[in-house]
Design a protein around this nucleic acid. Structure first.
Length: 246
DNA sequence: AAACGTACCAACCGCTCAATC
DNA sequence: GGATTGAGCGGTTGGTACGTT
């Protein structure tokens, strides 16, 4: 026996929602909550299937949605999270309050994907694009250089956690020089991890992800002594950096 | 001004998973 | 334990706005 359709297809409206339908759905949910999505359209007087109502509410009508353009910081967060979580949009959305998985997915497919490709990075793996016969020589130069030109000095609303026990899981630089700095080093330098922003940091610091000690999927930004940039990019993107720089 | 191409995004489709019977 | 169901997820589509020729 096959799975039954989520709703009766006949007689149900499809396509863009009207203002009137939106009002009905919002009014119903705000007054009654969501008993069961299948019942919502009937009870709210809508000729839609429950699935369609759910999607409309989650992606568009929810009062806690942020709407509007993504900030530079949000974009960077998405890149970082995607490098670790892949196309798990709902997980990524969970890290970005007020944003929906659909919104992030659309933004990724239309903007970020292209941005990474322009940087010579494979959007799926965040690794340098390899061409037939090995890595394209032009990408050798373009990749690290692209990182440098990627930066835009904009203020951010980053807040850093109290704990600094997590290990930076990446160091970069020539000759195996360890450039990652621990929180205590920042303290020694009179830098405050909790209130740091790209503007307040010295020019040779940039923001990277840090794995929580618990090994959880939580990703928090951290400051790393780097190439004179303050970008947030996937650490995985640097997997082949040494090879490229050679 | 019209035609065409591109970018964007809301909505849909089909699948999986977990809960329930 | 298997069937059924609802909810949620990720991929895809189609309409519209905008830019270019």
């Amino acid at each position: 026996m096959g799975r039954q359709p989520c709703c009766e297809k006949t007689g149900l409206k499809r396509g863009p929602w009207t203002i009137e339908e939106d009002q009905k759905l919002v009014h119903f949910i705000l007054n009654n909550g969501i008993p069961c999505w299948r019942l919502v359209p009937k009870m709210a007087g809508l000729m839609r299937c429950g699935k369609s109502c759910r999607l409309r509410w989650i992606n568009y009508l929810r009062p806690d949605l942020k709407r509007g353009a993504f900030s530079e910081m949000e974009e960077n967060q998405i890149i970082l999270l995607h490098s670790r979580l892949g196309n798990r949009w709902s997980k990524i959305a969970a890290h970005l309050p007020g944003r929906t998985d659909n919104e992030i997915k659309n933004y990724w497919n239309t903007r970020i994907k292209k941005r990474l490709e322009q940087l010579g990075l494979e959007p799926l793996t965040h690794k340098p694009i390899k061409h037939r016969g090995g890595i394209d020589q032009s990408q050798h130069k373009a990749f690290p250089q692209a990182l440098l030109i990627e930066q835009e000095k904009k203020s951010s609303e980053l807040k850093f956690p109290d704990n600094s026990e997590g290990k930076f899981h990446m160091s970069i630089g020539h000759n195996d020089e360890k450039r990652a700095v621990q929180a205590d080093e920042m303290v020694q330098k009179g830098l405050n991890m909790e209130t740091a922003t790209p503007e307040s940091m010295p020019a040779n610091y940039f923001c990277f992800g840090k794995t929580e000690p618990s090994g959880s999927e939580n990703i928090v930004p951290s400051w790393i002594d780097g190439f004179g940039t303050d970008s947030v990019l996937s650490l995985d993107a640097f997997d082949n950096l040494e090879q490229i720089l050679l």
